[in-house]
Design a protein around this nucleic acid. Structure first.
Lengths: 181, 181
DNA sequence: CACTATACGGAATCTCGATTCCGCTTGCTC
DNA sequence: GAGCAAGCGGAATCGAGATTCCGTATAGTG
């Protein structure tokens, strides 16, 4: 079993990294994270072999949180509400945590291994919510997963890199609804 | 006056840089550009003091092309066509030329000096097309420049980082039209 | 409380790509 | 076609940051 201080430090590093990455994105420096955690760089590396590993740990946690949210929304009575709430949640999440979406494409951090399962789960979750919403005529029938993902990616990236006004989001939502029922 | 070969090389570098940056984005290496141009790195630097300068030269040219397009569209009889054509053109442009949008935010390359005028011109052009489209009831009245820019940025970034299906674009267009007239 | 196996801090090292430098070429002038 | 300034190629230099290393500190154990 790990020493108690090691456990404590691991948590501190994770929290610091989450905060720093949220505000600075991928360019955040390792020493900045270490400093924020009140720890030496060496310690950061003892817990996470590389910057990418640390990054992945955080993104994974984030995605898990979103998946949990999706799970919760499956219980929602109104499919339209469920779908659009999830859509908005992802965008809001991206706005708050910089470079969240970056992680999925930028050099270095590729979609791989363990994350593969998460990606699959996320796609499944979105497809589920989408299908239900379309079934009740709340979303136009000619959009499928690729379109939703593209819109999600776009809105998230926009939110990360600057302002994404509520009305802009509403335009997309309206567009998705239009002529559906 | 510059020597003839210098002129020739400058053009070669510019073309190579455009191509390389289009496919690799900001992370493209200077030697890759030099190699593509069939020239030594030193030559690249003699013509463009820094990577950023080279980058700016290219982006500026691109923006000028878009501005020219906007100018042309001002003559278009149907304001709706003019506005949506321009919107689509920008997104298509971004899809073809990677990291085009990046340039406007990523570290290093900041919006400054000379580009400032271009930015202003672009905002003016979009505002003009938007206002006209709204005047004839082709675009909902509650969206303004910030919303359009956010949507444009999102769609462009999405197109740059992956696929942006036609239907996704149509969703946005529909959303902009909805309930306008 | 002594003893270690674990952890720690953070300076030193390594890596990678931008930028500089300089001896060699080549276009242009007379 | 000789002279030379403008250009060129590309190896060497720099800088920024990630990663490693190792002497020191400390939790856990008897």
């Amino acid at each position: 079993m790990p020493r108690s201080d090691a456990l404590r430090n691991r948590a501190k590093v994770l929290a610091a990294a989450e905060a720093v990455l949220a505000e600075q994105g991928l360019t955040a420096r390792m020493d900045a994270i270490a400093a924020r955690a009140g720890v030496g760089v060496g310690t950061v590396y003892r817990h996470f072999a590389t910057k990418e590993a640390l990054w992945q740990a955080i993104v994974e946690a984030r995605v898990d949180a979103l998946l949990a949210e999706a799970e919760r929304l499956r219980a929602e009575a109104d499919p339209a509400t469920a779908f659009f709430t999830f859509f908005g949640r992802i965008v809001a999440d991206a706005a708050a945590k910089k470079a969240y979406t970056d992680g999925l494409r930028d050099a270095g951090i590729d979609v791989k291994d363990g994350q593969g399962r998460q990606i699959a789960a996320m796609r499944a979750a979105i497809t589920g919510l989408l299908t239900r919403a379309q079934a009740v005529g709340a979303v136009r029938g000619d959009v499928a997963l690729p379109e939703v993902l593209a819109l999600l990616r776009g809105a998230s990236l926009a939110a990360e890199t600057g302002d994404f006004p509520p009305i802009a989001l509403e335009v997309i939502v309206t567009g998705l609804r239009a002529g559906a029922g």
